[in-house]
């Protein structure tokens, strides 16, 4: 007698907990070849609202930890990712239609990317900050500080490497994040939320919402309690106008990280390329302090 399949229905990840969508909806996630994989919760605008509340609540604690400590936590995430690499490889292979070998390479790159950003946490201030020369008896110091709550539209096609490549730079500098996953390939993000919940990342620092991008993106872009938004995930999303989102974001002068454009059309960046500091720099604010020199 053959064993019954355990058909999973995944939930959201908000404030360190795994709630169902407020709307009660879910949708079928299928593989690149159209086979049923699992059910995912279909997040609504109210889930976004709850996630922003959780992210705002977690901000003071996370931005207040030492950069060194944030590096340790990110490294711990990489360790737990490594421990579940088989599951990630399977999900990446089925979601993105890759061979087992190619999927393994993606998981390797994703883990390495997290380790890379883990190393950056306590070096951001050295590179982006400065002791400015001024004409007077003052120390003049510029230092980067986290922007605050960052909304992220995660890339639609690179479901794991792209995902960690947009989340890690945001939280490395002390921001908290509300992530809207790839609509058609959400499973690696769901598993990543299980990783985050079992590593040392405090609840609310990363909130992951599986949803139709077009439905929730406007609410996230217009939300007055969100300080920045990363529009990477508009590339390949149905019915999303990134310029309209940027206009909504102007309502409270959010920082906007635009999608990569090719002839004016958003495209997904090459995630295997050296990420550089662009994404870290996009979500920090420079604070400059004048201090009198002792004479």
């Amino acid at each position: 007698m053959s064993r019954l399949d355990v058909r999973k229905t995944y939930k959201l990840y908000i404030g360190g907990k795994f709630p169902r969508s407020e709307s009660g909806r879910s949708y079928e996630v299928v593989s690149a070849t159209g086979e049923f994989l699992a059910n995912a919760a279909m997040g609504s605008r109210k889930d976004v609202r709850d996630a922003v509340v959780a992210a705002r609540g977690a901000l003071a604690g996370w931005s207040g930890t030492t950069a060194y400590n944030r590096g340790q936590v990110l490294y711990r995430v990489a360790e737990v990712l490594e421990g579940r690499r088989a599951q990630f490889a399977l999900e990446v292979a089925s979601s993105e239609g890759l061979s087992a070998r190619a999927a393994n390479a993606v998981v390797d790159a994703a883990i390495d990317r997290v380790v890379w950003y883990a190393g950056w946490t306590d070096k951001i201030a050295q590179v982006l900050g400065n002791l400015n020369p001024v004409a007077g008896p003052f120390f003049n110091v510029s230092a980067p500080e986290p922007t605050g709550v960052v909304g992220i539209l995660a890339p639609q096609s690179s479901s794991l490497l792209g995902l960690v490549s947009v989340i890690a730079p945001v939280i490395a500098s002390g921001n908290t994040a509300v992530v809207v996953t790839s609509a058609s390939r959400p499973l690696p993000a769901v598993t990543l939320s299980e990783v985050l919940a079992t590593s040392d990342v405090p609840g609310g620092v990363v909130n992951i919402i599986t949803a139709q991008t077009a439905e929730v993106a406007t609410w996230l872009a217009a939300h007055r309690d969100v300080n920045a938004i990363d529009l990477t995930g508009v590339a390949g999303a149905d019915g999303v106008d990134w310029a309209a989102l940027e206009a909504e974001a102007a309502g409270n002068l959010k920082r906007v990280h635009r999608p990569t454009l090719l002839d004016g059309v958003p495209v997904e960046p090459d995630w295997t390329a050296d990420p550089g500091l662009t994404r870290i720099r996009a979500f920090v604010e420079t604070k400059t302090v004048w201090h009198p020199k002792g004479l």
């Binding site: 609202r49 609410w219 217009a222 939300h223 007055r224 309690d225 909504e248 309502g251």
Partner: peptide, 13 residues
């Protein structure tokens, strides 16, 4: 404010 502006508001307001 949410009802007036149509966007979720925050503690800054």
């Amino acid at each position: 404010q949410k009802l007036t502006t149509g966007a979720y508001s925050g503690a800054d307001y």
